[in-house]
């Protein structure tokens, strides 16, 4: 997974005391006196939820709407420049994913659409995600598990400039 660095403000590993439950399932992260909603990226994408005992890593992101929230990931691997490859021509649009890129080893990483992920906060795809997660076959869930560790931060060639799709 790749996330545009322009939207990332900072990465933190919150202490358990900074995590607060709100409602039945939502969690908030306390940081410097503010409370930010936490979004579990794996859960949002239908890859199953993570082990709650494992201390999470949070990426603080800012969206165009100036809202801040914390994306929960397993690990940050590195920062790199990537060439953006569209998914629409051969497959179609995927909620939460804006495009793909080819890594150095030939593997494909998906570029997260932070806008779409954070808008799920407002009930955009919470229900839908749950429904799809139930439908997914054991094999695809397994494949997804092995992918969760591949969270990569990336810097676009020109931070701030619109991405060209090659």
């Amino acid at each position: 997974m790749v996330i545009p660095i322009s939207s990332v403000i900072e990465t933190i590993r919150p202490a358990p005391s900074d995590l607060h439950l709100i409602g039945t399932n939502d969690r908030l992260l306390a940081i410097r006196g503010r409370f930010l909603p936490m979004i579990d990226v794996a859960q949002c994408l239908g890859f199953g939820s993570r082990d709650p005992a494992h201390s999470p890593l949070a990426l603080l992101v800012e969206t165009d709407a100036q809202t801040h929230c914390a994306l929960i990931v397993d690990a940050v691997l590195d920062q790199r420049q990537v060439v953006i490859k569209g998914l629409d021509s051969n497959y179609g649009a995927i909620p939460g994913v804006s495009a793909a890129t080819v890594l150095g080893d030939g593997q494909i990483a998906l570029i997260l659409d932070t806008e779409a992920l954070t808008s799920s906060l407002y009930g955009f795809n919470g229900v839908r995600t749950a429904a799809i997660a139930q439908n997914s076959s054991p094999a695809s869930a397994q494949a997804a598990q092995s992918m969760q560790v591949q969270k990569i931060m990336t810097s676009p060639p020109n931070p701030g400039a619109p991405h060209a799709i090659h």
Binding site: C44, L45, G46, F47, L87, Y91, I94, P95, G96, V97, A100, Q107, I108, A109, L110, R128, T129, I132, N135, S136, S137, S140, A143, A144, M147
Partner: peptide
């Protein structure tokens, strides 16, 4: 392959 989120069961990934 890289699995895709919200994909039907016959789509393994990209």
């Amino acid at each position: 392959v890289t699995p895709l989120p919200h994909a039907p069961k016959e789509v393994l990934g990209v």
